[in-house]
Nucleic acid binder design. Structure first.
Ligand SMILES: NC(=O)c1ccc[n+]([C@@H]2O[C@H](COP(=O)([O-])OP(=O)(O)OC[C@H]3O[C@@H](n4cnc5c(N)ncnc54)[C@H](O)[C@@H]3O)[C@@H](O)[C@H]2O)c1
Ligand SMILES: NC(=O)c1ccc[n+]([C@@H]2O[C@H](COP(=O)([O-])OP(=O)(O)OC[C@H]3O[C@@H](n4cnc5c(N)ncnc54)[C@H](O)[C@@H]3O)[C@@H](O)[C@H]2O)c1
Lengths: 218, 218
DNA sequence: CTTAAATTGTGAATGTGAACACAATCACAT
DNA sequence: ATGTGATTGTGTTCACATTCACAATTTAAG
């Protein structure tokens, strides 16, 4: 099944809806209205409905959307119906936190391998997996069929690791190093830059305050 | 100084430009062209130029933009010229990783306090700060003048903590718990949801592959 | 001094997504 | 049955963002 002429913004928002629905399911909500869903995701109700309408008619007029059903639909649209194999590179502070985080497993992301260059760390166990030697990365990744690599190494070595990954068949990299990675065109990199998120957040909340003040004037 | 009629998309991209420039400065680049900056940020060159033109004429025709100068300009536009006081709630795996991360300081984010509810953790030192009792949070935050709170507590207690924060004058929350937080309208919440980022990334990289295949056909 | 190469800044055209109002539909009460 | 209140689905309109082409400017070389 493939859908045409779906706005990229709609596609992006689908992930927000998925998260909201996952949350609602946890809270045992049976149904949800477009307006409630919109509220959770910080968008407006007509947008939610229009977005969903690109993929079919999932709601019941007068009632709303069935949480479980809609979540299943969206997960299928986003091709998240099977579990994802993840390799972690860099078993440092962030890396170890990620491995021991149990929710990933539940959400279908299985961190099955971890690599490091530090002799002290290689061979040690973190949670349920054993840290392996970065030297073995290319071979081991091939063996296990890894879908995604998480990069949690110091910034300075990130470009070097990027080259190693480029020679495997991994095309998805989630990097915590806030720097550019030169990659072949087909490899996608998402950079988790917390400083940037904080900066953006701060700017937006300050904006709201000053806007509020202006609106109060007349 | 305030700017009018700047597209929100432009505003958003400014943060990308900032990160790229920070990176370029570290690499000791003197100048950068709009096309190079665009490449790093995954946008196109005219967009970079148009975006910057909303705020002034920062470049030199035939040469490009001075990295340091442009970075300073952007930081001023984004109101990031003074350092930001951050409080961390939840000194667990993620929390401790964040505190010991040194780059935040360099980028102007000063994690100056940490709070937890666990008796074992209260009073212990992490990096250069001492974990305090969550009970004291409201008073202590008032005293220190905190600009932003990072929420790194288990999902289940996040809503409860949200209420505590709502009663302080903090209006910016960076949360690692992937759930909705009910907050007064003026409080902004950014949710760092790594599962969602991975899902999005995976979808996009798969898309590229299939698109490539289609293009190859004729 | 003149010309060529590089690169910025920008107005006008184009394209795309958001908003909105409302028809369609459903559950349920009477 | 039938009316009522709630809520979805969508065609149209409008606002906004992107793109493009090119004039303007600078550097460097001949
Ligand atoms: N810790 C944080 O809170 C935080 C926040 C934002 C960004 N980051 C970024 O995340 C990355 C990791 O941060 P961290 O705090 O976990 O650092 P860390 O120093 O604790 O861990 C880095 C790990 O990478 C390993 N490593 C080094 N070179 C390697 C190589 N060539 N191959 C494989 N492994 C290698 C090290 O042995 C170490 O275990 C850094 O780029 C940092 O800038 C961290
Ligand atoms: N660890 C990860 O890699 C990861 C990844 C994604 C999301 N998250 C999310 O980040 C959050 C923290 O994760 P973690 O792995 O650090 O968990 P953790 O259990 O290691 O740490 C949570 C900390 O919060 C403290 N805490 C509990 N209740 C509290 C309260 N009422 N007030 C103050 N402190 C309290 C606990 O004592 C503990 O120190 C969770 O919501 C988790 O879902 C974590």
């Amino acid at each position: 099944m493939t859908y045409r002429d779906v706005p990229t913004e709609t596609m992006d928002r689908l992930f927000l809806y998925m998260r909201a629905l996952t949350c609602l399911r946890r809270e045992k909500s049976e149904t949800v209205s477009s307006s409630r869903l919109a509220e959770i995701c910080n968008v407006n109700a007509p947008k939610v409905r229009k977005d969903l309408s690109y993929f079919g008619e999932f709601g019941v007029r007068g009632v709303g959307y069935n949480v479980n059903e809609l979540l299943d639909h969206i997960r299928r649209i986003l091709k998240l119906d099977r579990s994802v194999n993840v390799a972690l590179i860099g078993a440092g502070n962030i890396g170890r936190a990620l491995i021991t985080h149990s929710s990933f497993q539940l959400e279908g992301f299985n961190i099955s391998m971890a690599f490091d260059i530090d002799r002290e760390k290689i061979g040690t166990r973190v949670g349920s997996i054993t840290v392996e030697d970065m030297m073995d990365f290319p071979d081991r990744v091939e063996e296990e069929g890894i879908d995604l690599a998480i990069l949690a190494v110091p910034e300075e070595v990130a470009p070097e690791i990027a080259r190693i990954i480029a020679d495997t068949n991994i095309i998805s990299i989630l990097s915590f190093a806030p720097c550019e990675l030169c990659m072949p065109e087909n490899v996608k990199v998402t950079c988790v830059d917390l400083s940037m998120e904080m900066a953006r957040l701060l700017y937006n909340s300050r904006q709201t305050v000053t806007r509020k003040k202006k609106e109060r004037k007349p």
